[in-house]
């Protein structure tokens, strides 16, 4: 039950001021995303209104409010990747999966995100699936990478 997991997290932060962001981070880490019920529980614990908690959460790029896919694909669009064709790689992934950045495929297999710099600029352009980094990407390699994570669609 998600409530017991929440209580465990809340106990860690009892009496600590300004702890709502670390709480949101831990909860997302455990549950995958922040549902409306979860936000409302966090609000009660933090003695804030639900709108305030959602206001904080929605300000930061890290927080998700919908379920994400089994595999998270991050295409780097840092400046080094941009000048080496990162946008073309993102276009290709978008085309292959049929979803835009920020979206998840219907079968919940893949979520697609764009990120600003993964820090391995010498290997640009770069994409990351879960924790595996694919470097010096070229368009024809995209399909192969996706196929290793199971057929899309």
């Amino acid at each position: 039950m998600f409530i017991t997991k929440l209580v465990e997290i809340f106990n860690e932060y009892k009496g600590e001021k300004g702890a709502v962001i670390p709480i949101l981070q831990k909860v997302q880490d455990k549950l995958g995303y922040l549902s409306q019920e979860v936000i409302s529980e966090i609000a009660k614990f933090s003695r804030m209104s639900e709108t305030e908690v959602f206001g904080v959460a929605s300000f930061y790029a890290q927080f998700r409010f919908t379920r994400c896919g089994d595999h998270v694909i991050r295409v780097c669009l840092g400046t080094a990747c941009h000048v080496s064709g990162g946008e073309r790689i993102l276009d290709e992934v978008t085309r292959e999966l049929g979803v835009s950045p920020g979206e998840t495929t219907e079968d919940y297999k893949f979520s697609l995100e764009r990120v600003a710099c993964l820090g391995c600029c010498a290997l640009a352009p770069v994409m990351v699936v879960d924790k595996t980094v694919y470097t010096k990407m070229k368009l024809p390699k995209v399909r192969g990478v996706l196929q290793t994570y199971g057929e899309n669609k």
Partner: peptide
């Protein structure tokens, strides 16, 4: 939690305080 503006001092402080 991923907000470029938090590099700014007063925004960073707000973020540590648990605010936007």
């Amino acid at each position: 939690a991923g907000a470029f503006v938090c590099g700014e001092e007063t925004a960073l402080i707000a973020s540590i305080e648990g605010k936007r």
